[in-house]
Simulated assay, not measured.
Amino acid sequence: MGFNPRDAIESVKDIATNAVERSADIVDSAGHILKGDVSGGVEGIVSSSMDIATHSVYKIKEIATGRGDDLDEIV
Score class of each variant (00 low, 15 high):
23 S>W: 14
4 N>D: 15
61 K>D: 08
61 K>S: 10
49 S>T: 14
8 A>Q: 02
65 T>M: 06
20 V>Q: 11
3 F>A: 01
24 A>Y: 05
46 V>W: 02
18 N>D: 11
28 D>H: 14
28 D>Q: 10
12 V>D: 02
27 V>K: 09
54 T>H: 10
61 K>P: 00
69 D>E: 14
12 V>L: 15
54 T>P: 00
63 I>V: 12
18 N>R: 04
14 D>L: 10
1 M>S: 09
31 G>T: 01
71 L>S: 03
36 G>V: 09
39 S>F: 04
55 H>D: 08
9 I>D: 08
32 H>F: 03
36 G>P: 09
24 A>V: 11
46 V>N: 07
13 K>F: 07
58 Y>R: 15
19 A>F: 07
19 A>C: 12
18 N>P: 00
23 S>E: 05
11 S>E: 08
33 I>T: 06
4 N>L: 09
56 S>Q: 09
7 D>C: 02
68 G>S: 12
72 D>I: 14
32 H>D: 14
17 T>F: 07
51 D>W: 02
1 M>G: 13
6 R>D: 13
66 G>C: 08
42 V>E: 03
75 V>W: 11
63 I>E: 03
62 E>R: 11
62 E>Y: 07
5 P>R: 06
30 A>Y: 04
35 K>S: 14
59 K>M: 12
63 I>W: 02
52 I>W: 05
71 L>C: 08
65 T>D: 05
42 V>R: 04
34 L>M: 14
29 S>E: 06
29 S>R: 02
47 S>C: 04
